[in-house]
Amino acid sequence: MWATRREWAKKVRLLKSPAREKLATVESKSASICNNQFTSISNIFNTEASVRSRALKEKLRGYWKLFIVFFRIGLFTFGGGFAMLPLIEKEVVDVHGWATREEIVDIFALAQSVPGAIAVNTAVFIGLRLYGLLGAIAALLGVVSPSIAIILIIAQLFSQFQSNLYVARAFSGVKAAVLGLIAAATLRAGRSAIVDRFGLLVAASALALSVSGVIPVVWVILLGGLSGILYHRRRGEEQ
């Protein structure tokens, strides 16, 4: 479009300009056309580049946010993954809205039923969901970096760390909090996951099976899924 407009302007100016100035005008014209052409092309590139760079910036900010949120989660994951379920739920559902309350219970269930630590699996799951594979890697790096850094430091000054009285005392406090956090996780998951008597029965059986340790956890989860399908199908047929 710029080409036709410029040609039109050229014609107008050629008509206006006296004959003796024609040559000069045409010359300066062509120079300015070249100029215009150049700036407009660079403008096109500029806008495209700026859109692309803005999208990139947005994405990078997303990766960074994932990294930071899961870094915080990794930093405070004591005593095996369960204690940080309330923390993950708070960050992912309440603060950032990356999943709904029902979805997060499903994600926890899936994270437990595939190989890997629950904190790591949940991080990968959320990252993958938001920004694909790179998001998954960002969240994964976030959740494991604190462990790596702290273990590398401790590996250097191992004996001093272990026999330090203050470390042991602070850790006794942390252990107590971990216990409370896991209990809170049970209650919070129960509120959204147990909706009827069937759910209560399944939860109680899973608890008994898991505490007694008679069958592996994966089997408990699979049995729960199977009983859900059978129970609800039968109830659907009755209605």
Partner: peptide, 14 residues
């Protein structure tokens, strides 16, 4: 339906 069974299991496991 499967998740209606699995969700309570998670509660039991925690």
């Amino acid at each position: 339906d499967m998740f209606k069974g699995i969700r309570p299991v998670v509660v039991g496991l925690v």
